[in-house]
Write a protein that binds this DNA or RNA. Structure first.
Length: 496
RNA sequence: GGUUUCGUGGCCGAGCGGUUAGGCAGCGGUCUGCAAAACCGUCUACAGCGGUUCGAAUCCGCUCGAAACCUCCA
């Protein structure tokens, strides 16, 4: 691998050189969505962060297996609701099978990820499809002596684990603080300790999502699925585990403890976490009235939005910030991003029309700047913990060159032009995963253009200038557009 | 209250001890039949207060502000 990739490991709070377990293979596990609601910006940022990792690693030659799960068992509403299964609750409210709810929101998630041009992961395992693996994991933890059963539920003994292991190493939590900080809640006497977490939960009779287990009917604790599925598909040692910063504690901390208890070692080598988003400087929350789904963004159908923003605008906007920085959404910022992206794409279209200067008059681009320098900067940016904002800054340097050459203010040799073109395409489309939306979806534009042409042609015909009229018709035909003159004027069709 | 991220110019956002970030907006110019685009030039910054250093946006401490997590459960 010619590129030395450096990434920030949350575990050590440092940037580290990335050394895969089995080069050129790389295993990545990312915590995917809990499918009980419509996808929103938080989903987009997390998915896009690791889409960029996935894309770039493939670009520099790694063979990546990217696993992103779907959490579809036993979840609670987080805020006001009390101790009820998220998916089960939604199901009863809407009179649906739980799996029907899961399917619906999984499909919605996929739809919006596709619109954002986020690549599908290599494997997308569902928690509900891996109950057996989770039970096996819990058995191992039992055998190792770090689990206890209580009224049909199984809990992880954090205090015991912490005696011989560093519990809290990922999140910086200190066990004593956790124990002293927590208040005693009724109904939780099942746990020996407030810091303990569930491995398996006994299902009450009204709980509709349930599976048989050695401890009775129930459902797995939240953290079990990721430990079980990551190891199943990536092995007992794998490279990267990712997710949002909100999952740091308790979820990822618990995963580390579980895996260590079950396997005797930690499977994950690098932990990566993307930062959160805010809207107009505020957190996004249903109670604050600024909870905006991706559908609402794309349609512009939320009162906080001045207009609709295309998937690529959202994508570009998110990529303009580093994944470890908080990102604030505002109309002003989105519109600035929209204009910037348009500029990037317009340069891309100009690039296709550029011609190299003949060798006799080859003059390089502006003094001191070469395409290979920019190429180097692009790779340096991405190698340095996936710094997409710096990459984009470099791409705007390409834009400047393209526009200058278009204006005949600078010149490019054929080699430079080919290099420039390759660089632009590789980073804009392949690595950043952007798509020029105006070129793909332009039915409206085409309609407008054709109406204009037809009208002009009608004027020409009324002047009996049939030479021009026929020329228009013939030229259009060459573009596979057939003009048909009828009694009520001309119509046109596209021949495919 | 604890843990973890942050606080940069009109707005968004890079920056990891000394050297231009970049985008959007503004201003001045070039180009243009007009408009748009483009190109050139230009302005303004590092939350506050201390400390370390020859030198700090960048390291340390405190204060203020924001976000995530810290209870069941996923």
């Amino acid at each position: 691998m010619e590129n030395t990739l450096i990434l920030y490991n949350t575990l050590t709070r440092k940037k580290e050189i990335f050394l895969p377990v089995n080069p050129p293979f790389v295993g990545i596990y990312v915590c995917g969505p809990t499918v009980y609601g419509d996808p929103h910006l938080g989903h987009a940022r997390a998915a896009l962060t690791f889409d960029t990792v996935f894309r770039y690693m493939k670009h520099i030659g790694y063979k990546v297996r990217y696993v992103r799960n779907i959490t579809d068992v036993g979840h609670l509403e987080n805020d006001a609701d009390e101790g009820e299964d998220k998916i089960g609750k939604k199901a009863r409210l809407e009179q649906l099978e739980p799996m029907e709810v899961v399917q619906y929101f999984t499909d919605r998630y996929h739809l919006y990820m596709d619109l954002l041009n986020i690549l599908k992961p290599s494997i997308e395992p569902r928690a509900s499809g891996h109950i057996i693996e989770q039970i096996e994991l819990i058995k191992k933890i039992f055998d190792a002596g770090f689990a206890y059963e209580s009224k049909g539920s199984v809990y992880f003994d954090v205090e015991k684990f912490a005696k011989t292991n560093n519990y809290g190493k990922l999140s910086g939590r200190i066990l004593e603080d956790l124990l002293s900080n927590t208040r005693q809640l009724e109904g939780q006497q099942e746990k020996h300790n407030s810091a303990d977490f569930a491995l398996w939960k006994n299902a009450m009779p009204e709980h509709i999502m349930r599976w048989p287990s050695p401890w009775g009917d129930g459902f797995p604790g939240w953290h079990a699925e990721c430990s079980a599925m990551s190891v199943k598909y990536l092995g007992e040692h794998f490279d990267i585990h990712g997710g949002g910063m909100d999952l740091l504690f308790p979820h990822h901390e618990a995963e580390i403890a579980q895996s260590k208890a079950a396997l005797g070692h930690e499977p994950v080598h690098y932990w990566m976490h993307n930062n959160m988003i805010t809207i107009n400087g505020q957190k996004m929350g249903k109670s604050l009235g600024n909870f905006i789904t991706l559908e609402e963004f794309f349609k512009g159908s939320h009162k906080a939005l001045e207009k609709a923003y295309t998937p690529m605008t959202i994508r570009f906007f998110i990529l303009q910030a580093h994944y470890r920085s908080p990102l604030d959404f505002s109309n002003e910022a989105l519109q600035a991003a929209e204009k910037g992206m348009k500029k990037l794409f317009e340069a891309g279209r100009s690039l296709q029309r550029l011609i190299a200067s003949p060798p006799s008059e080859n003059i390089l681009t502006s003094p001191g700047i070469s395409i290979s320098d920019i190429r180097k900067s692009c790779y340096e940016a991405m190698n340095d913990d996936f710094n997409s904002p710096i990459l984009i800054a470099n791409l705007f340097e390409l834009v400047r060159i393209i526009n200058s050459v278009t204006d005949k203010k600078e010149r490019l040799s054929l080699t430079d032009l080919l290099d420039l073109s390759e660089l632009y395409n590789a980073f804009v489309f392949e690595v950043l995963g952007l798509k020029d939306e105006s070129s793909g979806n332009n039915a409206e534009l085409l309609d407008g253009l054709m109406n204009l042409i037809i009208e002009l042609r009608a004027q020409v015909r009324s002047n009996k200038d049939y030479a021009t009229s026929d020329k228009i018709r013939d030229e259009l035909l060459r573009l596979k557009i057939q003009v048909k003159d009828g009694k009520e004027g001309a119509t046109w069709t596209i021949d495919s």
